[in-house]
Nucleic acid binder design. Structure first.
Lengths: 235, 235
DNA sequence: GCGCGTTGTTACCGACTGTTACCGGACGTT
DNA sequence: AACGTCCGGTAACAGTCGGTAACAACGCGC
């Protein structure tokens, strides 16, 4: 049975990591997570990468003193856990924001599987390269953008990913709390609220709790300011 | 001829990437860069990774509108250019801060070389994983630390890497300008100067232009605050 | 020597964001 | 229904950092 037969296959342009092509060469297991369940926790032994087949997660880096930095919100088509390769243990948590379908790829077995198939050869390295580019685009955004621009940049990124998966880019459902968004963007949750309210007042978006409507994507691009430029290339 | 015969070999604990073990299986070329010369520029076709055998560089991410974000200061033992894997072209500049000895590793040939030798199998993935962890530790530092703590955290990281390479951790020579440090830490150069002056006034360090003495590493750790905790694990 | 550009330092002011506080609503538990 | 908790929104206040400016130190070419 193919991995992606319950829903439409993920288009190559969307997924850096083609788990369907890999599956025949690697024994994979599927896991189902419910909201709030952990995929892994900081300190747990690292023995597998995880491919998100459906659902949304939140990944974080956890410091020794308990401080937490949200590193991303993986969704369908994303590969999770790469930052533990070479470390032996996971350096942060991964928690489900809603019901998730996860494909578990044993490490280092996944290396052998890629090795055996020329077409899959650089796939893992390319997926990790893409993750490096995303991290650095975010660093640039955090370093150069104001609070309001960062929030617009964040919404813009979510909308683009939704659109890449075939959904509408004009309506978002934020699975994460204001605190999570703030942690991701190096802001406090009050500031996130302020920025969302202001963008709403300006007519750029329409916010109601965790529902966001984006009438005009171009206006959101403009609100994200100059930082928008690099995201399109690095995404 | 071995690659590392002009100076002492790099200890395995220091270098995530063991270029000496790889060399017999891959035709490598050496390049020499002088201060100010570019190793690559944003937009150039990506066809090789670069291993720093000696010298210091500055890598950056360049946005479409020309804004630049410094992403790191690679030194002896570091692998440069990984963030271009899968992108086709380099996403930023790499410039020499002094005379550099660079080993050029053709891509994707380096994948084949690793594939042929079991011992080198996950080496590239592990080096990239380490880079991901460094990026995320930096994100945590930028998100949680004050300006002065960030500067202390930066100096502390430099000192640790110097010590790992066998040099003294009590004396640093900053190859990069205040502007570069500020860009790396998401601060303005005046703020970097202020932080350095304040740390000097407190007796934590002694600064004179680009020379920094660190009489007591523990005091620098303390000045870096809580953010110091994660760096040791993620570095 | 001299002028000039670059880099580094310090001071002052103001804007942005963090801090604190309080309130309301949604949700689950007893 | 009553209660507590979590999440979200708003407001007043305070602190940090950026913006600007002026100046000093150094390197460079003439």
């Amino acid at each position: 049975m193919k991995l992606a037969d319950t829903v439409a296959p993920i288009r190559p342009a969307t997924a850096a990591f083609d788990v369907d092509a890999l599956a025949p060469h690697l024994p994979t297991t599927r896991r189902r997570l419910r909201t709030g369940q952990h995929l892994y926790r900081a300190g747990q032994a690292f023995h597998a990468l995880y491919f998100v087949h459906a659902g949304f997660l939140r990944t974080s880096l956890v410091a020794d003193d308990g401080r937490e930095q949200v590193t991303g919100f993986p969704m369908r088509g994303d590969l999770v856990g790469c930052d533990a390769i070479g470390a032996g243990a996971h350096i942060g948590d991964a928690i489900a924001l809603d019901t998730c379908e996860i494909v578990e790829l044993a490490y280092p077995a996944v290396l052998d599987a890629c090795r055996g198939v020329p077409a899959l050869h650089g796939m893992l390295a390319e997926a990790m390269g893409a993750e490096l580019r995303r991290d650095r685009a975010r660093l640039l955004a955090l370093a150069t953008l104001s609070a309001e621009q960062r929030v617009a940049w964040f919404l813009r990124g979510l909308a683009r990913r939704q659109r890449a998966l075939g959904y509408s880019a004009h309506h978002l459902c934020l699975r994460m709390s204001r605190v999570d968004i703030g942690n991701y963007l190096a802001l406090k949750h009050e500031t996130v609220t302020r920025a969302l309210s202001h963008l709403d007042a300006d007519g750029v978006i329409a916010v109601e709790r965790r529902e966001v409507r984006i009438p005009c994507v171009e206006r959101l691009d403009a609100a994200a300011g100059a930082g928008a430029a690099v995201a399109s290339r690095a995404a």
